[in-house]
Simulated assay, not measured.
Amino acid sequence: MSTSSAERWRHMSTPVDLSYPFAGRWLVRNSPANRIPSHGTRLFATAYAIDFVPVTEVGRTAPITLGSFVKPEPAERFPGFGRPILAPVHGVIVATHDGELDHHAHRGLPSIRYALTQQRRAGAGWAALAGNHVLIEGRDAVLALCHLRQDSIMVRLGQEVQVGDELGSCGNSGNSTEPHVHVQALDNRDVDRAQALPITFNGSLPANGDVVHAQTRAAE
C-alpha cells in the first residue's frame, strides 16, 4: 500500500462501511457504539474493533452449566464454532494465518484466570492476540478478521474476493474466551504501524447486546 493511500484513509471523516461477515444470528460485544476504545486499548489499531459471537435462533450461546463456572469448556460445545466467516468487502487478500490451535472456552472462574494471562499474549504482539486471521485490502481500508478456526482458511495471498465469499470458519484461536469473530479496519496492512479506522455495517453500527440477524451473504 502506498503512503498516500494510508494518509488518505487516516483522515477519512466517514466510517468504512462493511457488510456483515457472516449469515445467521450473532451477538454484539465490545462495540465502539458503546465506548471508544472498544476493547479498552488503542494498541494494535483496535480502537474501533468489534466482536460478534454466534448464537442460536433464540439468541443464546452455549448453555451455562455448573461446570462452566469451574473449568474450561470445549470450543465445539458452542453453537457457532465452525460457522462460515465471509468477506465483508471486495478486495485482495494480503495476509493469512491459520496454524494456531483452537483452545477451550473460558467462562466463570476460568475467564478470570484466562484474563490474568492476557498481558503475556499482548506482549507477544498482535498476531498472538488475533490467532488465525485474514487481512483484506479493500478500497477504503485493510480489514482484519480474527480468531478463525485452525486450518479453515479457504483463501490465499493475492486472491481477489467479493462480498460474501467464504474466507474460513469461526474459531477460538488467539485471545478469545469463546468462539467469535473480531473485526477491525486499519489504514495500513502493517498492523504495528497502522491506525484504526471507524466502521459501520450496512450503514449503521450495532451496540452491545444487539443480536444481528444477517439474512444473506452478499450485500455489496
Results as ranks from 00 to 15, higher is better:
177 T>S: 13
96 T>D: 04
44 F>Y: 15
118 Q>S: 13
204 S>H: 13
10 R>S: 15
74 P>S: 15
29 R>L: 09
198 P>R: 11
159 Q>D: 10
134 V>Y: 04
179 P>L: 10
171 G>N: 05
122 A>T: 08
39 H>L: 13
68 S>A: 07
81 F>Y: 15
131 G>A: 12
100 E>I: 06
80 G>R: 06
130 A>E: 03
21 P>E: 09
206 P>D: 13
112 I>C: 02
208 N>T: 11
152 S>A: 10
42 R>V: 11
120 R>P: 00
57 E>Q: 14
204 S>N: 13
164 G>W: 01
134 V>K: 03
52 F>V: 07
90 H>F: 03
203 G>T: 03
171 G>I: 03
194 A>T: 00
4 S>E: 14
41 T>M: 10
2 S>A: 07
53 V>P: 00
183 V>S: 08
24 G>C: 08
27 L>V: 09
143 L>K: 00
217 R>I: 10
192 D>E: 09
147 H>Y: 04
149 R>K: 15
215 Q>P: 00
14 T>W: 04
97 H>A: 15
64 I>V: 11
60 R>G: 11
29 R>C: 06
113 R>N: 02
214 A>Y: 02
42 R>D: 12
216 T>V: 14
36 I>D: 09
101 L>Y: 07
183 V>G: 05
73 E>S: 14
157 L>E: 02
15 P>S: 11
120 R>I: 03
129 L>W: 02
121 R>F: 00
120 R>G: 03
132 N>H: 13
180 H>I: 00
156 R>C: 08
161 V>E: 04
95 A>M: 06
172 N>I: 07
8 R>P: 01
139 R>W: 01
43 L>H: 04
1 M>D: 09
196 A>W: 01
129 L>G: 04
146 C>H: 09
154 M>L: 15
12 M>I: 06
79 P>Q: 13
151 D>C: 07
206 P>C: 14
93 I>Q: 03
202 N>K: 11
8 R>T: 15
